[in-house]
């Protein structure tokens, strides 16, 4: 799905450079905990989050996330937007709450790849890893 479509579905505003809008995404991951994003997200996915600090941009950079949507009208500081521009990660802001933003994109056919989740070592770790 193209970022243009995602922007329209979420009534979102793009707050970084327009040029990056040529990106498109195949999957979505949604969380406020960056450690979780670093553990389970897929490379190239769209991240939906309610956190707006610089670590979110860093997380996206390390995990090769291609676009971030901030929910509930939350805007990061200018310095954080600049960092995203530097890393060529488009940022979108929607007034929708996280729940409805997820619902709308899921309705339009986007999914979490999530193969990594079913084989997550959550139980394995207690069994002596």
């Amino acid at each position: 799905m193209s970022l243009d479509e995602i922007r329209d579905i979420l009534n979102a505003t793009v707050i970084t450079h327009q040029a990056s809008l040529r990106n498109s995404v195949e999957s979505v991951y949604c969380a406020d905990l960056m450690s979780d994003v670093l553990s389970f997200s897929d490379s190239g996915c769209l991240l939906i989050t309610g956190l707006t600090n610089a670590q979110v941009i860093r997380t996206a950079e390390m995990a090769a996330i291609s676009v971030i949507v901030f929910v509930q009208g939350k805007r990061p500081a200018l310095q954080t937007i600049r960092l995203a521009d530097e890393k060529d990660i488009p940022l979108l802001v929607t007034d929708l709450p996280m729940f409805d933003a997820c619902g709308r994109l899921f309705e339009k056919g986007l999914r979490s790849q999530s193969a990594s989740i079913s084989r997550a070592p959550i139980v394995a770790c207690h069994e002596g890893c």
């Binding site: 406020d32 905990l33 960056m34 450690s35 979780d36 994003v37 670093l38 553990s39 989050t49 956190l51 600090n53 670590q55 979110v56 997380t59 070592p121 770790c125 890893c129």
Partner: peptide
């Protein structure tokens, strides 16, 4: 509140 410290760090490094 910053999105870290949920106890996933070291396990994720290992993974």
């Amino acid at each position: 509140a910053m999105g870290f410290g949920s106890g996933m760090g070291l396990p994720n490094i290992k993974k």
